[in-house]
Design a protein around this nucleic acid. Structure first.
Lengths: 247, 247
DNA sequence: CGTGCGATTGAGTGTTATCAAGGTGTGTGG
DNA sequence: CCACACACCTTGATAACACTCAATCGCACG
């Protein structure tokens, strides 16, 4: 609620995701149109944003925090199919019902647009559709990367892959140095990591312990990770050890 | 080569994928522009269309046959990350190098456009960009469905899932009856199925034998499959037994 | 008739899941 | 302030499922 107030009257020009979100390519006048139909919503960690199957009357962008897209089978097995970071887009123009659960993994602020007006804007504003196409293609690439992880990597490689992705993302935001240790906080519980990687939480825990024992990672606390050697981590992930940093 | 000739002078209006491909929404004049930059290419089963990492100077649509998108790790483990059926699009506007291997699984005919002119058309022709967005969103949904299969399903469920997808696609093309047995030919080798499902070919073979023994499927030959009861197959796949047919 | 590819089947192994117990840290109420 | 509850995490013992290695089969093709 306090977070909501914090953003309620924010001008798009000052938005932290202004240049990465679906509105990134918009001109000033286009932005004003978007601004007139936008509103902010906040969620606490653990809250469900949308239930699979429910009607979706909005689309929107993650402004801050992390959300996850998950699929659940009848017997309770769950698989995360998307990790939504700031600037990522939620919802599909033209779709009536949500195909996945959307859950706030951390406290979350979203910039929402009512679906109908947004769909109309899509037609009149090519910049929005163009940007959405780019973003969707990027998400498709990420999904295909994860298919390799899910289908072919060992538990240890899966953990190393996830850590290297989070580390890479964090490095692209905060630090600037290309070399040297990388430090970050895990935004996911062991269970969420397991759901992302197609493992059990016990296996996640064991493999993290193993990577720690082998000095691939250092743990100050259960969530606070230091990567002394990024190349080593990427070897463990089964990726090309070099070349990758800017992929 | 003979296939190539067969399509070389085909008018778009008579094209079998005219209403499903990236050109689906195009008006007559837009189609003429596309027609002026298109050319057909044919590949034999097993041929590689594009190697991962190679520069891509074209994009295009699958006209007939099946192609696969695969990722390969340094040690040879491979994961299929896309199954390209007629009307599916290959390539990403704006991208220089291919991120995956594209391999012809069967004999294949593609309708190609040189990348540069196609990218220019994308800007001037919203119908193309709109359709490409739709198709990309559909592919993303399919990829996420596969993430559940890869991450959480058993070998038996994986096989049943793949069979039900192929059966569903075939049913949507050929037959009309909603009930009754479904018959089709598998377009994939056991090895290709394994690469798709994150299994070994031996496990694929064993599970197919098991499904056959349990009368979930009937096999006239190794590739010719009959599904006596689609609901039963979908139960085996771990999906909701009903509701699914039009998903 | 031999060759080769795709597929099947078997035996043994190993990675990961399952079941179970216990540990750590944080917030809340007595 | 302490004790308790709870969520999150770790670790151990055991078992199951899928992988590996290996032999064989069937079929198409030269």
């Amino acid at each position: 609620m306090t977070l909501k107030a914090q953003f309620d009257h924010t001008n798009c020009a000052e938005c932290p995701i202004r240049h990465r979100a679906v509105c990134a390519h918009c001109e000033k006048d286009e932005l004003e149109e978007l601004e007139s139909i936008k509103y902010y919503r906040s969620f606490e960690a653990g809250q469900t944003v949308i239930w699979s199957g429910d009607p979706m009357n909005f689309v929107g962008s993650v402004v801050s925090g992390i959300a996850s897209l998950t699929q659940t089978m009848e017997d309770g097995r769950t698989q995360m199919v998307g990790l939504l970071l700031p600037s990522d887009f939620v919802g599909r123009p033209g779709r009536e019902n949500a195909p996945y659960d959307v859950v706030a993994t951390t406290d979350l602020v979203m910039c929402c647009f009512r679906k109908k007006p947004f769909e109309e804007l899509m037609v009149t504003t090519p910049h929005i559709a163009q940007r959405l196409l780019q973003m969707t293609l990027d998400e498709l690439d990420a999904a295909r990367e994860w298919m390799l992880v899910l289908g072919r990597k060992t538990a240890r490689e899966k953990i190393a892959s996830l850590l290297s992705i989070i580390a890479r993302r964090d490095a692209s935001l905060h630090s600037s140095g290309t070399v040297g240790p990388i430090v970050f906080d895990l935004p996911l519980t062991r269970e969420a990591m397991a759901d992302y990687l197609g493992l059990t939480l016990e296996t996640v825990s064991r493999q993290i312990s193993a990577l720690k024992k082998d000095k691939v990672i250092l743990l100050e606390s259960k969530r606070h990770v230091t990567i002394p050697d990024m190349g080593r981590l990427m070897e463990e992930a089964g990726d090309d050890s070099d070349g990758g940093f800017l992929v």
